[in-house]
Design a binder for these strands. Sequence first.
DNA 1: ATAGTCACCTGAGCGC
DNA 2: TGCGCTCAGGTGACTA
Length: 269
Amino acid sequence: MPELPEVETTRLGILPHIKNCSLCRMEVRTPRLRWPIELPAELKGQVVQDVKRRAKYLLIHLETGALILHLGMSGSLKIVKRGSNAGKHDHVDLEFDNGNVLRFNDPRKFGSLHFQKHPVESHWLLKNLGPEPLSPHFNGTYLFERRRNRKIAIKNFIMDAKIVVGVGNIYASEALFRADIRPNRAAGLVSQKKCANLVKAIRQTLQEAIQAGGTTLRDFTNSEGKPGYFGQQLNVYGRDGEPCYHCGTAIKMVKTGQRSSFYCPSCQK
DNA sequence: ATAGTCACCTGAGCGC
DNA sequence: TGCGCTCAGGTGACTA
């Protein structure tokens, strides 16, 4: 999927095409993705106030609340013109009065779409989320305190949305490389200094990826159908057996939890 | 409370 | 060409 940078890229891509436009038609072709999709009729005629992001959720703010959309592992949004034929896995169309259609495609159906009235943050999917990684609430002191007595691998720890949101499998490996920390290290054993470094690394990695328009591994494209270019800046992800750009040592792959992690056994301790 | 595993679903790539 | 297997960017639910 879409990790945070891809979601942000999508947000920026769709915003100018739907902001201040009135929702005039909704077509739900697939009644449930990860969760059932139930869009109340009251949404019709409502004007898009803004499109925001919380964690990896896109929040399409309408007048009485917001649509909460998650892209799952394989979801994407694009803007098409009214009347354009829907293809395979095009599950939902939201049509606006300017003729634009926001089309939600998701082959694996791990995505989701909900509507929540104000206050939107009270939705059960949002209310227990940790801080945004790019916000001041996420800092070295915070991470250091939270990691006390935790035995979980640091990589899984930073991928826990109750600790910090938006850090997915690619950027977790990348940030740990930049902070010189092995993905398997017990979270509780990461020093205060390393915690501070890790926070910086997570921020930098995400920000650079947003600038590059996200990472395209297989199928991610932005709302105009173009790929992201951060893949060319990946130091370890997907580079099993290839030489580390810093020291030349072969990158290793390990499984932490169910997910693949990549690290340089020489640079990362 | 925490750590680990399973489940949801489709498609791509590989070896045979 | 086709079959069977493994893997994939997420995350809530479940178990121990």
